[in-house]
Design a protein around this nucleic acid. Structure first.
Lengths: 130, 130, 130, 130
DNA sequence: GTGGTCTAGACCACG
DNA sequence: GTGGTCTAGACCACC
């Protein structure tokens, strides 16, 4: 399984779970229509509380990434259902702005910033080159 | 004052404060040697508890951004004090990776990602162009 | 418990606590993966305020000595997490320099200084010989 | 002047002053009978509050390093007056123990510890070799 | 006046 | 249950 949960991280487990699944979709490991384990099953696999899985699923569903089926697993939605909208773009711009501000403070040049950003993207699409 | 605190945000106040100050340094509104208000003064200005300000200052101090003086407030350090190190680069790469993953998922192309990232940086250095 | 807090000392309680825990790791009484009490439990044990313990834990976490878990207490990290870096070596050299200066002033010879330093180290690794 | 005061340091100024003077004695820059400026003069030289100088002098006097003359300067005492006693040895052993504990934790070997300690001493007696 | 420490009590997110 | 955040008020060292 490509899901990686770090129980010692300060990032909430349900957030890590969401990020793992989003990362899975981004890298193509999870495709449209693919099935995710049921809450109960997933909880057992990861030795995690059911409520935690449930919370992650609920939020992924809200964001359009998955459809949850009662008592069954969850299905990855079609990309159209979670295409970037204005709201998302605004949130992401804000997050990038924070990162860019600290980078600029710490002496990262525009060229370095460019490289770091593009590397982060390329790593997802062409992992073999990393 | 350019500090903006959103008391309804889920982001802790002391984190918002840290980010505001880092943003101020990045945009050149806060320069080396410049003074920050005393914790009591700042607390009164923002209608926030003294200890919350103190926590933000303590963490900025640990990261090298400011020096806390004995009988004055706090001073912005020289850029050398908080230059990027390996640890910081790793943390930032991880954060960017998360953002890039969601962007890719949501159909942001490499060109769009490039634009968004560079805009975030440019906005800090050339605000007049925004 | 091997933790000793002197409420009358001028050394802040949270610093004493940090030193006690570092001492515990150094002497092998606290090993990787070992659990530390929860902040509430520890506070009750030592008759100290919760927040004081919390501050010590937070700083030990920042320095890499422990990981604070979500629903457990804190765990001692692997030694790699807190291996000496340049910054630490600089700080320690400064501290030793102060001690050496006073020792030299007070007529401690190089041989005596050598003995005192090595005793301090040996006391941690071979307590039976003391 | 060999006195170095860092107004941004978290170490109290009067402690820095004491350390500077002790360092001066250790390195031979201040010899028995040599005169230190008056409190008033010193305060003016360093742009520091008189009370701060006074506090440093008082403590140095208590420890036997200097003799303070009313309305005049202070004289460095004879080495015999501040030779190491049992109490001092105990305090120093404790301080070294703390440093050694952290060093051991952080993977400093006995050989490295030896080198670092002896370097700190040698730096005072043979500065030219550094 | 300043920041730092300690205590106390409340609320919240997480699991 | 856990730790994290915020508020509040007190005391202290430093300058």
């Amino acid at each position: 399984m490509f899901i990686q949960i770090d129980m010692t991280s300060e990032i909430p487990i349900y957030v890590q779970l969401k990020q793992s699944i989003i990362m899975g979709i981004a890298t193509g490991q999870l495709k449209q229509g693919e099935e995710l384990p049921s809450v109960r099953q997933f909880a057992a696999d990861l030795s995690i509380n059911m409520h935690t899985i449930s919370k992650a699923y609920a939020q992924l569903k809200d964001q359009g990434f998955i459809s949850v089926h009662r008592n069954k697993g969850a299905l990855i939605n079609a990309p159209e259902q979670y295409a970037a909208d204005e709201k998302y773009l605004g949130v992401m711009a804000g997050a990038l702005s924070e990162l860019a501000a600290e980078a600029l403070c710490r002496g990262i040049s525009e060229e370095q910033w460019h490289k770091i950003c593009m590397d982060a993207y390329a790593q997802l699409t062409k992992p073999e080159e990393i």
